[in-house]
Design a protein around this nucleic acid. Structure first.
Lengths: 334, 334
DNA sequence: CTGAAAGCGCTTACAG
DNA sequence: CTGAAAGCGCTTACAG
């Protein structure tokens, strides 16, 4: 226990005032001689400025609160890793909260972030209560929504073009000649779930096709597998599954439990293009959510908001990646 | 911009002193009447205590720094989620750092955590330089290593019984009648990698079998698939792969690229028992790392250290989970 | 129980 | 450029 080394201790050892030490470490101007003396003393004492004290005065903690809901869908660890790195590069740190099970208790978590004087908040795939949004606003703490739209909230938000993506999936399944097309939908309480479903139904209806069935899978593996079984039993020869995470469960269930062939008996399309989708075991056709671009846009929006700007909603386009689960690239032009 | 609401503002509105406000929010004693007045004023003003200021005085931030190296191996997002939740339950928050690519630049990250006055540090699967370890010690900041041993460092650490696990794998592969057994090893720069490999070789040698080959896969999918191909080409009929993450890549490569059958042509065993290992598509025999118990032990050790205790190293036993990739439970007794 | 006061470790005008 | 001083928003002895 050497005890905390403070700027005062460094000042004494260097034979300068405490203010001088502070100036050296906060990058304010100081003579070369002072800088040298201070650095030397600091080195010898192992001094490092107390970031808390600095934040208390400057009113900026350089900490960004990041809320994430579930890490079992591999899209989110990936996003979290990239967000954290991008923030670090900008000199910010991430105070991470894993949102509680009941998706809607995020408000308490956000409040705690405010208590910690975070400079800004990124909410990945979780919503924000109106009251809390107002409180953040009045506290001058910008909030950016990642992969979640909340139109009423009027918050900066970054999503991929979910409606367009869903529609593109419909076009693809029709193009490869499928007629009995079902949909294992994402959680309809989320904008991603709703938008993908809507886009998909739009696409089908444009092709003059009625869906064989549309059943919510709620972004849960177990539920997705269950409802997929229903749909194929009803005769579906193609399924659009609301995200890759569910699609893997659906493929496993159909192939290994029910003995169906993919894509011969049933074509499968997912959403996200997580790395696993490209693995030989799944080879899943899917819409790519360009996570790198989405993270970049999110961090850019946050920095802009910290600078006083008011960024709006942003949609990033993602391509359809055609793989074996719908017959592969060769079938793309059929 | 209502501006920050401070305890002084609440005091004025409530007609009490600032100290009284502080006492109410820090749980110190106060008369029912004071509490009521203060709470009312605070409510009306939307007051919440500034945690930074509190931490500056108490010297406790109630923030735990968590360093994680890679989130692409699903074992770690899972661990991170559980760690974060467990910490939240104890009233702590997690300042998360994703360690930079070059595994050994963790020191800078740890230093930054110290600058933020974290109360403690959990380092998941990363090492800690001697100098930094010493600095944490002298600052009185406990560090607990999760899933990584570092015997020289004399730090509290929680791992699973990797040596025993590796040995158990050898016994199992011998028991099901495999004779030409290869090993795609984990990164030998890590204790987990080394211990599993050692245990495995011990087990083989006890059975009087020499390994067909031992090649490092470094916990990387691409490398693992590559060296697995070498090993089976050399005639291996069974492979122990250093973790599940690599084992999936190995299975995909052997089955879908090379056309081998698992387990008929080659039996595969992994390590970790991440959820995916139980998926029908892999059905991977593996040693379970009991992540729940490991997290619990880690948090307990950290809390104990925060209380002044000096917890030691802890090894959690994990069972062999026999699945289809080695012929399933039916073959377990052969 | 309560208020006045000191102080946590810094930053930042303000004089010199 | 530099030091003395005020102050960030709290907690916590100390008297009363």
């Amino acid at each position: 226990m050497s005890g905390r080394v403070t700027s005062r201790a460094v000042a004494e050892r260097a034979g300068v005032s405490q203010s001088a030490v502070s100036r050296v470490f906060s990058g304010a101007s100081a003579s070369a001689r002072t800088v040298e003396k201070v650095r030397k003393a600091a080195e010898e004492l192992g001094y490092r400025p107390n970031v808390l004290a600095r934040s208390l005065i400057t009113g900026r903690s350089r900490i960004i609160g990041v809320v994430v809901a579930y890490l079992d869908n591999p899209f989110y660890p990936d996003a979290l890793e990239r967000l954290s790195r991008a923030l670090q590069e900008e000199g910010y740190h991430s105070l991470v909260f894993i949102a509680p099970e009941g998706h809607n208790d995020t408000d308490r978590v956000i409040q705690q972030m405010l208590d910690h004087q975070v400079d800004g908040i990124i909410a990945a795939s979780v919503g924000l209560g109106d009251e809390l949004a107002a409180r953040c606003k009045s506290a001058g703490i910008p909030v950016v929504l990642f992969n979640r739209g909340q139109p009423e909230a009027n918050l900066p938000q970054v999503t991929s073009a979910n409606h367009a993506g869903g529609r593109r999936v419909a076009e693809h399944l029709v193009a490869i000649g499928r007629q009995r097309i079902g949909h294992v939908a994402g959680w309809q309480g989320s904008s991603t779930g709703r938008d993908r479903t809507e886009g998909f139904l739009t696409g089908l209806s444009e092709a003059g096709i009625a869906p064989t069935g549309v059943v919510p899978g709620d972004y849960r593996r177990d539920k997705a597998a269950e409802v997929a079984e229903e749909l194929v039993t009803q005769g579906a020869d193609a399924l659009f599954v609301g995200n890759d995470h569910m699609a893997f469960a659906v493929m496993d269930h159909l192939r290994f439990i029910m003995g169906w062939r993919v894509p011969e008996d049933v074509a499968i399309v997912g959403y996200d293009d997580v790395p696993m989708a490209a693995w030989a075991g799944y080879d899943l056709t899917t819409i790519r959510q360009p996570v790198g671009q989405m993270v970049e846009a999110t961090v850019t929006a946050l920095l802009a908001a910290l600078d006083g700007a008011t960024p709006g909603a942003q949609e990033i386009n993602g391509p359809l990646i055609i793989r074996g689960s719908t017959g592969g690239a060769a079938h793309a032009r059929i």
